[in-house]
């Protein structure tokens, strides 16, 4: 796949925008997934993932063609996600209690208008639960965990994407795993 991508990138550099469309098709799901797991919101994830592809296109001339394109687009996307997380001041949490009520959280304020079969509902609830626990991780551990276990990348690739020494990546993954163990042991 990398050779096809390399050929497409050469075409993009020559000004062929359609060739870039093929690159977006190849990586959109992975990049969107990364953004969604980092940000926990589909709209924001779509925003940031699109922005990442646009930035990659604009800066395509600075892309080192000896490296993997996937690492490069991941790096742009991770940086954008971290910027977004830092800018975003959370003004409310869904599981915070609604003031003046007892035991009523924002979750109960959201009406569920779709009726789902029980199994599906259960698995969806578990999915949400896991996503919520991922979102609670400090962003540097979250990033490492997402790249390792959701994007299924090697430690070397993660170190390249995050521009960090391998040892630091390992430490972050270890700490992230320990934090998740604590958070998920009673699920």
């Amino acid at each position: 796949m990398e050779t096809i991508v390399k050929r497409r990138i050469k075409q993009v550099i020559k000004g062929d925008q359609d060739a870039y469309g093929e690159i977006v098709e190849l990586y959109r799901d992975k990049v969107f997934q990364l953004c969604y797991r980092m940000l926990g919101d589909r709209h924001e994830a779509e925003d940031i993932a699109q922005e990442a592809f646009i930035r990659a296109f604009i800066n395509i001339n600075s892309f080192n063609q000896n490296l993997k394109f996937s690492s490069w687009i991941y790096r742009i996307a991770t940086n954008l996600c971290i910027d977004r997380i830092r800018k975003k001041k959370p003004d409310y949490f869904l599981d915070a209690e609604v003031p003046g009520t007892e035991g009523l959280t924002m979750y109960s304020q959201i009406s569920s208008d779709t009726v789902l079969p029980e199994d599906e509902l259960e698995s969806l609830e578990l999915q949400d639960e896991v996503q919520k626990e991922i979102s609670k991780l400090p962003e540097k551990y979250r990033m490492a965990i997402v790249l390792k276990y959701i994007e299924e990348l090697s430690l070397n690739e993660i170190s390249e994407i995050l521009d960090l020494p391998l040892g630091t990546v390992k430490t972050r993954i270890h700490r992230g795993r320990e934090a998740l163990r604590q958070q998920l042991k009673n699920v």
Binding site: R28, D29, V31, F32, Q33, Y36, R37, E46, A49, L126, Q127, V130, Q131, E133, I134, I145, Y149, I150, R177, L180, R181, Q183, L184, K185, V187
Partner: peptide
């Protein structure tokens, strides 16, 4: 178990 949970989050599409 924690790893399995994270790995089993369904892969969402763009």
């Amino acid at each position: 178990k924690a790893i399995a949970f994270v790995q089993n989050t369904s892969h969402i599409k763009a």
